[in-house]
């Protein structure tokens, strides 16, 4: 049995079925991310002064990732246009470049996550607070490349309280609490990891689809090029949506 309207537009909607399906899916995605953005706004606005972090994320890396994702949106569109122009070789090149750019995006994200997960705040039993990147840790000692701070409020805006980083050796007997900048650190990191992690999962999903269309799925080009072109188009629509989400995630998490 043939699936109807995979190539020809359906008379009542004017578009082929998969395109309507993708737009309906994207509508549900808008609500999914909308809920997270609204949670962010509520928590951000109601945070007491000096409790919301400023400048914790690398703006140059975030900007670079924004440009990489924008470039991948262009190459995915060019891949679709190449199919429309019956230039299958060009399609392969542009889709391959899209995949590589997505991989670079995820690699930068992984580097940023690693930076946060190896950044520790150590609260000592005498009340002092040490903060910095973990150098080493064993049963007796923890070594940080960081600084002692007067209070946790000083950690919220490192640019306002610049300090020289040095190697700090702390005996585990003195440690009251040892916590990395993971999702459980504070409300900001919880939101950062949830929102950017969900976005990264979307990138991964898009990559799987693109890899299929670039590899085994591209066999359809020989038997039904119009249908294959439509598959590339709707995968591209999803990718543009993922780019759109990042366009708002970047300023919200990195710049404001």
């Amino acid at each position: 049995m043939d699936i109807p309207y995979t190539v020809q537009p359906r008379p009542d909607t004017g578009v082929y079925n998969a395109k309507v399906g993708m737009w309906l899916f994207l509508a549900s995605e808008v609500m999914l991310f909308g809920g997270l953005f609204s949670a962010y706004i509520l928590l951000r606005v109601s945070a007491p002064p000096d409790t919301w972090p400023q400048g914790w994320l690398s703006v140059p890396l975030g900007t670079l990732n924004t440009l990489i994702l924008a470039l991948s949106a262009i190459t995915t569109l060019m891949a679709w246009a190449a199919c429309k122009a019956r230039m299958f070789d060009r399609y392969k090149v542009y889709q391959g470049v899209t995949l590589l750019l997505a991989l670079v995006f995820l690699s930068i994200k992984a580097y940023e996550y690693r930076d946060k997960l190896t950044h520790y705040t150590v609260t000592l039993k005498d009340g002092r607070i040490a903060d910095g990147h973990l150098v080493s840790r064993d049963d007796t000692t923890v070594v940080l490349d960081g600084q002692f701070v007067e209070s946790r409020a000083h950690l919220m805006n490192p640019k306002r309280h610049p300090a020289k980083h040095e190697e700090i050796r702390i005996s585990m007997d003195e440690v009251k609490r040892l916590q990395n900048y993971g999702p459980a650190y504070n409300t900001f990191t919880a939101l950062y990891f949830t929102m950017s992690g969900l976005h990264a999962l979307h990138i991964l999903g898009g990559m799987l689809v693109f890899a299929y269309l670039w590899g085994p799925g591209s066999r359809m080009w020989k038997t039904d090029p119009a249908r294959f072109t439509n598959r590339v188009e709707i995968a591209g629509l999803f990718w543009h949506f993922v780019d759109l989400v990042w366009i708002f995630l970047f300023p919200v998490l990195y710049l404001t």
Binding site: G14, A27, M31, S38
Partner: peptide
């Protein structure tokens, strides 16, 4: 096509509602 704009119009209404209720 009009179908896609209709889907987007509904999405916009619900999205504005979501954000409006939060605010």
């Amino acid at each position: 096509r009009k179908t896609i704009y209709t889907v987007l119009a509904f999405t916009a209404v619900f999205f504005v509602g979501l954000m409006g209720l939060s605010i």
